[in-house]
Design a protein around this nucleic acid. Sequence first.
DNA 1: CTTCCACAACCAGAATACGCATGGGGGTAT
DNA 2: ATACCCCCATGCGTATTCTGGTTGTGGAAG
Lengths: 224, 224
Amino acid sequence: MRILVVEDDIKIACFIIKGLEQAGFAVDHSGNGEDGLFLAQTEPYDAAIIDVMLPGLDGLSLIAEMRKAQAHTPVIILSAKRSVGDRIKGLQTGSDDYLVKPFVFAELLARLQALIRRSTGTAEAASLAIGDLSMDLLTREVVRSGQKVELPPREFSLLEYLMRHENRVVSKTMILEHIWNYNFDPQTNVVDVLVCRLRNKVDRDFDQKLIHTIRGVGYVIKKS
Amino acid sequence: MRILVVEDDIKIACFIIKGLEQAGFAVDHSGNGEDGLFLAQTEPYDAAIIDVMLPGLDGLSLIAEMRKAQAHTPVIILSAKRSVGDRIKGLQTGSDDYLVKPFVFAELLARLQALIRRSTGTAEAASLAIGDLSMDLLTREVVRSGQKVELPPREFSLLEYLMRHENRVVSKTMILEHIWNYNFDPQTNVVDVLVCRLRNKVDRDFDQKLIHTIRGVGYVIKKS
DNA sequence: CTTCCACAACCAGAATACGCATGGGGGTAT
DNA sequence: ATACCCCCATGCGTATTCTGGTTGTGGAAG
C-alpha cells in the first residue's frame, strides 16, 4: 500500500511518515503543493494525506487539480482550522475525510485504513490464511498450526506481501521495492536474509513447507 | 522479449536489469548514448528504456536518431525532471511513455508490458498449452498429463520460447539469441544439451513426443 | 547394399552461480 | 542502559550450467 503525504511542517511530516511506515505502508513525501501534485499524477497511490496550509499551491487547490485528471484516490485532509465551514469546503473539494490538528496518530491510521478498505471495495480481509498458516492484520498475530509465531515488523510485512500474492511468484526486485521502498539495487543480499529469517520462524518446525524458492526469479507462498 | 536499457547510473541500471530478467526478459544494457544508439540500430529489440540524462549523446537525441532510421520500437523515457514541459518534450520526440525517477519498478514493468501488448497486438497470455502439456507463466508451473514437471530457469525459458512458436520451426541461432542473448556462434553445443535436458523431463516418460528435431534446421514443438 | 560423412544426442566431470545460514556491529526504541 | 532489530559481510553447500568427448542416427554417394 502506497501513501502520499503532502505536509510542509518537517516535524509533523516525519511523525506521520514514520508512523505509516511502521504500520506497513510505503510512503512518499512532498513539502509543497506543486511537487505533491506531480507525484499524485505520476505515481499510483492508494491514498493521500494532504495538509491544507501549504507554501505555493494550497491543499484544496491541489486536490481539485488531482480530481480533474485522475481516478478517485482517497484523500484525507489535515488542517489546523476547526471551523465547520472549512470542513465542508474540504469535503466538497473532493476529499474523503478530514482531520484537525493536533491529532492522535492512531486516529489517522484508523481513518486511513477505513478509507482504503472502502475504496478498494474488497472488504479488506482482516486476516489472511494459507493452509494452517494464518495472519491477523489488525492484531498482527501470526499463527501456524495453532501455534503463535512472533514476527518483527519487516518479517511480518514480507509475509503479508507473500500471502497477498499466494500462488504467484514475486521477484526479489518487487520485494525489495515493496518492503524497503528502494528503487535501486542495494548490492547486498538483504532479501535473502529476510526470507531466511522468516522461514526459520514459519516453516522450519513444520513438515509442509509453504515458502518456496524459484531459483533466479524469486519466491512463492503456496500449499504444495 | 528483448529489451534495451540505456542508463548511466550503475545502481539504477542493475536494479532495472535484474528486475526485468526476473520477469523473463532478455536485457541488453548500455551506459551511454552512443553505444545505446549502436545497439538499437543493430539489434532487434521489442522495447527500450532510456534515461534522458546521459553522458555524451543525451536520451532525447538518441530517440530522435533511432526514429530517423528505424521502425517504431516502443520507448519508455526515464527522467529525474518532474516538470510537465520536459514530459511533453519527451513525448513529442517520439517516446511512448514517460516515467519520473524515483519510480516504482512494478509500474515500469506494467507500463512496459502494456506497451509491448499494444505494439504487438497480442494479448499476453497467462498460460500456454499444447496437447496435454501446459505451462503457467505466473506460477512457473509446468504440467504434463496432470503430472508436475520441475524446470530450472533456462529450460523453462526454452520451453516457453518453443511453445510461443507452436508448429513453427525455431532455429538454433534464434534460440541462442533469445535464451543467451548471443548474437554470435559460441562454437559449442549448448543448445543441443539444453534441448536434451528439456526432453528428458518433458517427453521421455510419455508416449506422444512433442519436441521434434528438424535436422539441419532446428526444433519444433507440436502435437503430432 | 554398404560405406562414409555430417549432424544430433547423450554422458559425466568441472566450473560457476546462486541461495542459505550465521554472527557481528550499528542504530533505535524502550 | 539495555535489548532488540536490522543491515551487511562472509563462508558453505548445492543446483545448474558449461565443456569436451563419445556414441548414435540419417542421408547421400559409391
